[in-house]
Amino acid sequence: MSDGWTRPAPAFPAFPPRPGLAVEEIVGRSIVTVVARAGQEAALRAVVETALGVLLPEGPRRVAGQEIAFIGIGPGKWLAIGLPVAALAPLADVAAIVDQSGAYGVLSLTGAGARRLLGRAVAIDLDDAAFGAGSVATTIIEHVGVTLVRTAATPPAYELYVVRSYARSLAHWLHETMG
């Protein structure tokens, strides 16, 4: 008896579109924390490459393959985006694999206005030279922890990962700041 209740609920209210800025929630995305076991980072890199066809990024970067993207969130730590936790089983010998699909709300922000809006939000340099496509920053917006990912250069596109319990507070702030 599964009556569709396994469908994840949205974390955010809807954002009406604004000129030069589209903000949309990405609901139901698989998010898994992958942490290399001590001294196993090279081994993890090899397994990820053979099993998933992706080169694990060094540092706070995003690398995307066909079905999965990895986002660096700390030394030896990544978020694996796009495949359910079971698909990461081959990594289990060399890494901790922890499903976080329920933990995050994910927003995509696109358009010239996205850069301006985020400039009001995060205290990091968003200039193309400093935060081009593939850049990742785990930081804070108005006391709320977020991971910000630049997914595309033009038009500027970003993804914002925020823990679910803070999603509404962040949404309220975004609404006000978008004006």
């Binding site: 001294g39 901790a96 499903d99 976080q100 329920g102 995050y104 319990s165």
Partner: peptide, 16 residues
Amino acid sequence: WPELDVSLVPVTDQWA
């Protein structure tokens, strides 16, 4: 104790 092989992942928000 960095020599101990332990991974830590906060999961407060993962679980209701």
